[in-house]
Write a protein that binds this DNA or RNA. Sequence first.
DNA 1: TAATATACTGCACGCATGTACACTTTTCAA
DNA 2: TTGAAAAGTGTACATGCGTGCAGTATATTA
Lengths: 203, 203
Amino acid sequence: MKSLTDKQQEVFEFIRSCVRDENYVPTVREIGERFGFSSTNSVRGYLEALEKKGYISRRPHSSRGIEIAGEFLENAERGIPIVGRVAAGAPITAIENLDGYLELENLYAADNHYALRVRGDSMIDDGIWDGDFAIVRNQPRVENGEIGVAVVEGEATVKRIVISGRTAQLIPANSLYSPIHVDLESTDFRVGGKVVGVHRVLY
Amino acid sequence: MKSLTDKQQEVFEFIRSCVRDENYVPTVREIGERFGFSSTNSVRGYLEALEKKGYISRRPHSSRGIEIAGEFLENAERGIPIVGRVAAGAPITAIENLDGYLELENLYAADNHYALRVRGDSMIDDGIWDGDFAIVRNQPRVENGEIGVAVVEGEATVKRIVISGRTAQLIPANSLYSPIHVDLESTDFRVGGKVVGVHRVLY
DNA sequence: TAATATACTGCACGCATGTACACTTTTCAA
DNA sequence: TTGAAAAGTGTACATGCGTGCAGTATATTA
């Protein structure tokens, strides 16, 4: 992408901050006023430059019709910074240690995921504790032996699920508990999805 | 907050979806066109009602001057939906089961948190596995016995930390490992923060 | 040395747009 | 049964606002 001049960058940042912080797109005259231009045509030059270089697009003849290009529209810095190897001497959260961002919406794409609060310690040997959030991908079946959400008579539980013939086995990961056998023909049973993540809040 | 009529809700949702999805505020006439009104004054009635009930505010005489009230401006629906008790018959992700949203930035306020990838199984009895992300609140010390990040000679590890006199003990949660004793006067030691959450990606 | 991008001023055109006034109909609580 | 809120239609007006044309001046590049 072509680089901007200092002044063009300033104008672009002003427009972007309006959209981000105030939630409205400035008019040509508002931009001019901000920078002390006496002519709307001064702004026009900037907008044409920004458009040609791909930083904005414009809806012709529409008031406040500037659209910031997608790649400059937020999103980049959301989430919690992931710290990699710690550089010598630098504080642990220093930028040079930055390894990316941890964000749920990024990790578990869009629409087909949900979270379920786990109750009880039946999955403790699989590292899923009482109170943890299970992140579940919504799907109607799982491979035998995978950890999933079993919905039995409207009650949702997290277990390893094995289906064979007309019975579903719900296998806990805790030697104190025994597998539950569900008769598929006499019971309202449904797989609620596959557990693809676990989140625990400690504080 | 005063409730909206069905039609008012529709108009409000249309405006909101424009702002959220297309990133522009519709004009009075664009709203009217969307709903098939032949008069701009029809829209005016809705805008006045929405403003009076506190759902929007307006910059007078400014084009595209509708501002969505803060509490309806995104944020609410970010993250992964948390499903509570499953209503009878309803699919598990049905809206009536919705219990809120799981989002890291929401859970771990703003700036003073980072994530660290855990290496090794030394904390397995505390439910922290190899490859898990530890969510860490950046703070210079922890209470004795709390799980924190110990930075020893630039190397960051997650352990229970006990400091007494001139030694720091880094206590693993795995009977296969022994506590590590660090001499504070001869070693570059620093507490990198307190572990306040754990996230595991399974898929 | 000519051409092109950058950085402006000044003025004007004309549609876009918020707003105002006048009126009709239906619904619903006091 | 009166009256307010809701849901419209239709017309009109002033100004907001994007755009176009005509210039000027200074760098940067070919």
